[in-house]
């Protein structure tokens, strides 16, 4: 019995000296908005060149770029003239767009690819949730319309 008490005392002595580890269940994460570092406005040429690559998966020719830059300067409302240009791009048979069925069968993958294509970043959970709900609740929303909204959004004008 005496020996048992000595062992118990020694055990308590050793265990009481062990360093406690506190675990809060946190994981590391970015504290800035994913778009926080984009503060440089694209020139008309940069905007058109990037848009063209995003939609056609190939580089625009210099001649077309010059013509389109002149079109942009010929209209005072830049957002309006970009909408006209995007409408024209999206009506081009060479446009490369995901199928509507593919988008709806895997909305998360479509959105992650869209954010990567236009914004060169991953979407936040809030962004995924909004778009997932929006696409599911609006049967007539197509990949073309989603691409259009990305192309005229503020973030796409900056890099």
């Amino acid at each position: 019995m005496k020996r048992l008490l000595i062992y118990l005392f020694c055990f308590l002595l050793v265990s009481s000296c062990a360093k406690e580890e506190y675990k809060y269940g946190l994981t590391s994460t970015d504290i800035l908005q994913p778009s926080a570092n984009k503060d440089k406005l694209k020139t008309a040429e940069q905007y058109i060149a990037v848009l063209y690559v995003n939609l056609f998966q190939k580089a625009i020719s210099t001649k077309e770029l010059i013509e389109l830059e002149r079109i942009v300067r010929s209209v005072g409302d830049k957002r309006l003239v970009y909408e006209l240009i995007i409408s024209s791009f999206l009506n081009d048979p060479e446009i490369i767009l995901p199928e509507n069925a593919d988008m709806r069968s895997d909305i998360k993958t479509f959105l992650e690819a869209s954010y990567q294509r236009f914004y060169i970043r991953k979407p936040s959970e809030l962004e995924l949730e909004y778009f997932r709900n929006y696409i599911e609740n609006n049967a007539n929303v197509t990949p073309e319309m989603v691409y259009f909204s990305f192309a005229i959004s503020d973030e796409f004008f900056f890099y």
């Binding site: 809030l126 962004e127 007539n140 929303v141 909204s149 990305f150 005229i152 959004s153 973030e155």
Partner: peptide
């Protein structure tokens, strides 16, 4: 609808 989605994207930015 395109403008609605654009507005959401703009709010994020």
């Amino acid at each position: 609808k395109i403008y609605e989605m654009q507005q959401f994207l703009n709010k994020s930015y």
